[in-house]
């Protein structure tokens, strides 16, 4: 039963991807991207990664769709159709895809307790989350405490991205009257 659900979800994801590539309307493609993200969130729920599913549903299906639509409002919704041979890109994509599938055969199963990644430091985190930190949600204690530096870096990246967008798109006309501080 679980295999059927997994297969149906992955097949649906591939179907959305093909539909987005084939669609010529950018507005339609933007909406399909939202559906694609919602579909990804479903897959994350099946994988028991509820935290990621939350994020994917809110960012992917919500905010990024709005931002893409905002971009379309600025640039227009027409796509210039170019008929060019895409042999080399097809070859590169096919080769990398085949290599990834070949590599995935050797990967440990999802949630395998004997996988190398789950043997090194993960047991310490799982035990320490209850004793050292006292928080039931291991994800939070890893993100916020054991990997606090990484999360600080991530927040800095988000802040920097916001500043970058403000630099590019501007926050209104600059005030001419303001003099530089000496």
């Amino acid at each position: 039963m679980e295999a059927i659900v997994d297969f149906a979800l992955l097949a649906g994801l591939a179907a959305w991807a093909v539909a987005i590539v084939r669609l010529r309307s950018l507005f339609g493609a933007a909406m399909l991207f939202g559906i694609y993200s919602l579909h990804c969130a479903l897959i994350f729920v099946v994988l028991d990664a509820v935290d990621v599913a939350f994020t994917e549903a809110a960012v992917g299906a919500g905010i990024s769709t709005v931002l893409i639509l905002g971009t379309l409002a600025i640039t227009g919704i027409k796509l210039e159709v170019r008929h060019t041979r895409a042999l080399i890109p097809l070859l590169i994509t096919g080769t990398i895809g085949a290599a990834l599938i070949y590599a995935s055969v050797d990967m440990p199963l999802v949630g395998d307790p004997n996988a190398p990644a789950n043997l090194h430091i993960v047991p310490d985190y799982i035990e320490g989350s209850a004793t050292e930190i006292g928080i039931p949600n291991v994800v939070t204690s890893v993100l916020a405490s054991y990997r606090g530096y990484d999360t600080l870096g991530e927040v800095t990246v988000i802040f920097t991205a916001g500043v970058g967008v403000l630099c590019l798109l501007g926050r209104g006309k600059p005030k001419r009257s303001r003099k530089p501080r000496g």
Partner: peptide
């Protein structure tokens, strides 16, 4: 602020 930047950037 991203939304403000995109939505405020009118044609």
């Amino acid at each position: 602020s991203l939304f403000y930047a995109f939505a405020g950037y009118r044609q």
